[in-house]
Amino acid sequence: FTMPKPALFSGSGAGCPATTFSAWWENNCSIILLLEGRVRVYNEIFIPLVGILVLVAVWILLQRTRLGMVIRAGVQDREMVEALGINVRRVFTLVFALGVGLAALGGVLAAPSMGLSNMMGESLLLNALIALAIGGLTSYPGAALGSLLVGLLQQFMIKYGQIGIAIPFTEIIFKPTPPIVPASTVLLMVIILLILPNGLLGKKE
């Protein structure tokens, strides 16, 4: 089942594709022309913006609030936090609920593009683990950086799988096949972990 996109991002009539954001707002176009390219407003502008907002909000929660301090302390020394009279189990239950809520938000945002199913998260789980390993298991900014690298690499391989990559000093055109796309992220993870065992921004505990 594929959910329809919100009406704000599904227009295709007169005035579309839009050439300015004001024209997009007036016509609710699904596509806007930017930098000499066709940009899908929902997939390539709205979802990344929501992702950035969620990223910043979670960082503020973890680093600038009392709850975030308790979460970080509970991960490092649960017994000490409990000795201070804080119910760590309740806090961790709240963290789990927050994670479920974020997963649900991701599912709702992805549904118009990926379709709804009870298995839709499985295709993203491996990429999430790879991104986490690349960025560093102990680093929140590292997880964000790892996700960005995995996404960019996959899109690069998909793009050049269609047009090919010219091998320098030869006439060979290399066209990555579909199985190479997931393999490329695994290879990137292996290379980074061989050089930096804790990931790009991870710290040795």
Rank of each mutant, 00 (worst) to 15 (best):
I60P: 08
I60Y: 08
I60W: 11
L61E: 00
L61T: 04
L62K: 08
L62H: 07
T65H: 00
R66W: 04
L67P: 08
L67T: 12
G68M: 04
V70L: 06
V70M: 05
I71A: 01
I71K: 01
R72Y: 00
A73M: 07
A73G: 07
A73K: 03
G74K: 06
V75K: 10
V75I: 15
Q76G: 10
Q76F: 13
Q76M: 08
Q76V: 10
E79K: 05
V81L: 05
A83D: 10
A83F: 14
A83M: 09
A83C: 10
A83H: 08
L84F: 08
I86E: 02
N87M: 04
N87Q: 10
V88L: 03
V88S: 07
R89D: 15
R90S: 12
V91Y: 09
V91N: 02
F92M: 13
T93L: 15
L94R: 00
V95P: 00
F96C: 10
F96R: 07
A97P: 06
L98G: 02
L98M: 05
L98D: 00
G99A: 10
G101Q: 15
A104K: 06
A104M: 13
G106S: 13
G106L: 11
G106P: 11
G107V: 06
V108E: 11
V108C: 05
V108M: 13
V108L: 15
V108A: 14
V108F: 12
V108T: 15
L109N: 00
L109T: 04
A110Y: 15
A111Q: 06
A111R: 03
M114K: 09
G115C: 08
L116W: 12
L116A: 05
S117K: 14
S117A: 14
M119R: 11
M119T: 14
M119Y: 09
M120N: 06
G121N: 03
G121I: 04
L124P: 06
L124N: 08
L125T: 14
L126K: 01
A128K: 11
I130K: 07
A131I: 03
A131D: 12
A131Q: 04
A133H: 03
I134E: 07
I134H: 04
G136R: 11
L137T: 11
L137M: 14
L137G: 12
T138V: 04
T138A: 06
T138D: 07
T138Q: 15
